[in-house]
Design a protein around this nucleic acid. Structure first.
Lengths: 372, 372
DNA sequence: CGCACGCTTGGAATCGATTGCAGCCATCCT
DNA sequence: AGGATGGCTGCAATCGATTCCAAGCGTGCG
């Protein structure tokens, strides 16, 4: 592999000049610049990122920690992160905690020296532990909040408001809630959102069916509870669970949506492929990843220019109708919230009415996902 | 962040001694070793991977290039790679070519300086281009072969032999083939496997329905062709396409498997969640990733011990008397082949016979047949 | 009793690129 | 014409860890 000295020799200049010429930092005559550029091109020279990293104190890499790369939710987040990171000139380290929050501090610590910043998707870690892992490198949280750490999440509560509104409009009055794990950050927010929405609606009773693993398997149990509780609709923590519910209901001979409606959350790709297709809340997963990279890159570059100082907390307004928590924290880091929108498909319908199949997939075009 | 000098100062020794003590390279007195270890622990010292990488010429990182991180097939491969890489002490860079083989050479070239080795999943690149991208770092291919490059793939042809055997045994005689993209390496192998299997079976006619995108959308078109071709079974290139076929057939009122059987390939998680569940060929995707890491790590370490020709000019070759250098031809780049096995579910059945639902998912304990 | 050997340890070079600083030369101004 | 200015360029230090080499000192053997 060619290094700067080779280029210098070929161009008949010193390595310093090579570096300056290639960095276009000015102070290099046009003729020299040209000669160096040609020599570099001829040798296929690329500065060694390791050496540059050592000298500059920056690796031009960021790290991403997710619970499970196979989970379509996080796969999409990862995809968004990867694309935006590369566009911003950063390479991406990825690691998977295998759903074990206990390993996360280790993973983050290992990253800390290798990357300029970290994006952390950690739905099941408590705030205290989480803040403890934020040390050296700038960190951005995805799909959750924590005091003092910048984050990008979606408006879970609003999504659930839309869901319950939809079910209410269809005539559902007893609605089952298949919650996710009790320590899931977004899970708690989604349930809270449902409760608040229920208070605003006439005669809607929320039946809490329990907490289930956020996978197909969790849906099987949730379906049994839903049938036992005699609800006319179930709202699942996420699509994976909802798909499990659909499958189990089908197995038990419960027709969807005639006998029971089912709603998911996230809008993963397969939600359109089951029958009936799943009504769910579209979450811009790749968009979360992209936005997280934007925030992280901004933080990295801010840190590079200014000394570590408290940033101006003027970014986003406190949530209306929040949990009453004082937002006046000095280290208040920006919390970004992306919007969500319910996507109505075949798995919800008027209770007791026969199911009319929705138009064939493949022709639907309503897939507008945020580009920024 | 503490560096070696801080530790040296605290322990009252030189940085050289710190390095030796922490590397347990011997030649350090027990007392000093102890003092250094304590100092390092107290300061939470971790050697800077960048500096170490520069000095050692190794980054302890590997790179993975996949066409699409959101595709469940590659998500699983990625998961396996990640887990095994970390276990082997390597960090993992991931990049997504966004299904565009043209960008792959660039991506690989960018990785080349940052990593010790590269794992490349590139199903749609021709051999020539592929070999052209294998330059600096050791490279292992996943899910495909190419002359001169080590690889890990599955036995596609055998999988298809099992599939056609199964369909034949059920009584199918006109079997549609929904091929993947014409430049898909495994796609070609799968079709070839089907053709060879058909020659071995009595009276089976293979009807080639065309080439389709390996996604849901491709399945929609494939289903239409299958109906038109009046086949009793369709074998799809992969599960995603098969799921699209199932959905489209359902939309057209074609019952599966009574009117038509459908078979996929890969055994992605959702294959069990549709109704009827998809008969498919189980591919050990994470296992492919793990094996690829094993091969790559072996190659990296072999290279590390094989090439110190500049450092010690007195390299005594085990076989003196050889004419000239004659570099020993890289041991013919091993091609590793993992086995696959058909998984029979509800989407295949005897032509014309009414579908009998298989046991409920979640309670099933095996997918083997009932007799032993 | 003296010399040599060996175990520890520190000094310094090294990996490759970036950058402050100084020097050189040409041009321009007075 | 001489000095000053400023544009280019090279030297050398630097980032942090590893490793070769040599030195110090104690011990063992002749």
């Amino acid at each position: 592999m060619a290094n700067a000295r080779d280029v210098a020799q070929l161009a008949g200049v010193s390595v310093s000049t090579v570096s300056r010429a290639l960095a276009r930092a000015g102070n290099v005559s046009a003729a020299t610049q040209q000669r160096v550029a040609e020599a570099a091109a001829r040798l296929g020279y690329q500065p060694d990122p390791t050496a540059r990293g050592l000298r500059m104190g920056r690796t031009n890499a960021i790290g991403l920690v997710v619970p499970d790369l196979e989970n379509p939710y996080f796969a999409s987040v990862t995809k968004g992160v990867q694309a935006r990171a590369r566009a911003a000139g950063y390479a991406l380290f990825v690691t998977d905690s295998e759903e074990d929050p206990a390993t996360e501090p280790t993973l983050v610590a290992e990253f800390a020296r290798r990357v300029d910043g970290i994006i952390l998707a950690s739905p099941r870690t408590d705030d205290e532990t989480l803040r403890g892992m934020v040390h050296g490198a700038p960190t951005v949280l995805v799909s959750r909040d924590a005091d003092g750490v910048p984050s990008v999440a979606v408006d879970d509560a609003d999504g659930m408001t839309q869901v319950l509104g939809h079910l209410h409009a269809l005539g559902h009055r007893r609605v089952g809630v298949a919650a996710g794990p009790g320590n899931s950050w977004s899970g708690l927010r989604r349930v809270a959102g449902l409760r608040r929405a229920a208070e605003q609606l006439d005669g809607v009773t929320l039946v809490e069916l329990g907490s289930f693993p956020p996978y197909f398997s969790g849906g099987f149990a949730a379906a049994d509870h839903a049938v036992a509780a005699e609800v006319t609709a179930v709202v699942a923590f996420n699509d994976l669970m909802a798909l499990g519910i659909l499958d189990r209901l089908r197995g038990r001979g419960v027709r969807v949506p005639d006998d029971m409606s089912v709603v998911g959350f996230d809008d993963v790709a397969v939600a359109t492929l089951v029958s009936p297709a799943l009504t769910t809340v579209h979450v811009p997963r790749a968009g979360l990843g992209r936005r997280a990279v934007d925030l992280l890159v901004a933080a990295i570059e801010a840190r590079g220019s200014e000394s570590p100082e408290l940033a101006s907390p003027e970014q986003s307004s406190p949530e209306p109708g929040g949990a009453g928590q004082a937002p006046s924290r000095a280290a208040a880091a920006a919390r970004h919230r992306l919007g969500v929108e319910i996507v109505i498909r075949g798995s919800t319908g008027v209770p007791g009415e026969p199911f009319r199949r929705s138009p064939l997939p493949g022709t639907a075009t309503s897939n507008a996902s945020s580009t920024t």
